[in-house]
Design a protein around this nucleic acid. Structure first.
Lengths: 196, 196
DNA sequence: GTCTATATTACGATAGAC
DNA sequence: GTCTATCGTAATATAGAC
């Protein structure tokens, strides 16, 4: 967000994608710049030709990752409950809990955005609003879409902190059940904007 | 959890409580040991007489903080929907979002537990299960209690990453609405274990 | 038990060669 | 654009005085 008319270089993209995986795994504050860039096969000297500093990298990671999440939900049909449940069940799976590096950016990094510079929060807010626009369309209700996101993100984050698979499963199963109940109650209470 | 029969010293307690506030504000990985202990008025030399290392401090913070959260919910009457809603609305408030240092440990630090040693996760799992035992009693349904926790934790964490109050409010309002819907559907579907 | 001082390593960032 | 080398700082942890 620092270089408005910039043509995103191939190296910069590679840097963002590789460092995103590492940051989702080890945390952003917990990963040094050297480790972050060498995950993409570069050294720190190259990094600072693409980014003003570490802060700008977090902005780019968040933006790119939320856009990727948005893209995945974009393929669903609007208000197709079956499709939506399939996607949410995948989100609320043990596989997702076990592989943060390949998963959604929100459970591992949202709390770090809360401590980041205001510039990063602005990027986060914009990218999240675009994700929520898509999710709201698929769910059919904006408030319900936010609540589904909160539920899913909270469940995966908490499950990752637990020691045993039994406990992880308990949290995930509760979330899946809650998601089903939310969608079912939405089904009974049809569209807020009557199109008749 | 390293010193099983230990009598927790006054200094150790002070160290844990003060460093918990700082860690909730700045992150645990983002806070140096010096900053953590000087928040309690000590220097790092004293710290290592009480803890084996930084990892053990995180375990203690998580344990102490989850116990504090448990204590706050313990005062509620079981299945008193009005009381419960009051507590959840306070959790889902802008004040809570704005003051992580005084708030629940889960939104700011749960993701760090996910990257912590297994020992820390065991402490987390035990302390969380005690919290959930209390919360389940107040809610009247264990699975619903987990879902309420997921919802609240996710909402506060995401709200903290947003730039504007409008956006924060949107996330919190959606969570409060979802919480109300969950409790209402629980009200209609009475106790699973029929006491007749 | 706590402090001061310090060893050692890691971090964020820059300089200069290529 | 990228690398190597490095500067200055801050990190985790320890030693030894009190």
């Amino acid at each position: 967000m620092r270089h408005p008319p910039e043509q995103k270089s191939r190296s910069r993209e590679k840097l963002v994608r590789a460092s995103a995986s590492l940051a989702k795994q080890q945390g952003f504050a917990g990963s040094g710049v050297d480790a972050l860039v060498s995950a993409a096969g570069f050294t720190s000297g190259a990094f600072y030709r693409h980014f003003e500093g570490k802060d700008e990298l977090l902005s780019s990671i968040v933006e790119t990752e939320l856009e990727a999440t948005r893209a995945r939900f974009s393929t669903l049909e609007p208000r197709n409950e079956e499709q939506l449940l399939l996607a949410l069940d995948a989100y609320l799976s043990l596989a997702h809990v076990r592989h943060p590096e390949a998963g959604c950016v929100l459970p591992p990094l949202a709390s770090e955005v809360g401590r980041a510079p205001h510039e990063t929060k602005k990027v986060f807010e914009r990218a999240l609003s675009e994700l929520m626009a898509v999710l709201s369309e698929k769910v059919g209700d904006s408030s319900a879409a936010f609540a589904l996101l909160n539920q899913c993100v909270g469940a995966v984050m908490i499950a990752r902190g637990l020691a045993t698979d039994n406990a992880k499963h308990e949290v995930l199963a509760a979330a899946r059940q809650s998601v089903r109940a939310s969608l079912a109650s939405l089904r009974m209470r049809p569209p807020p904007q009557g199109t008749f």
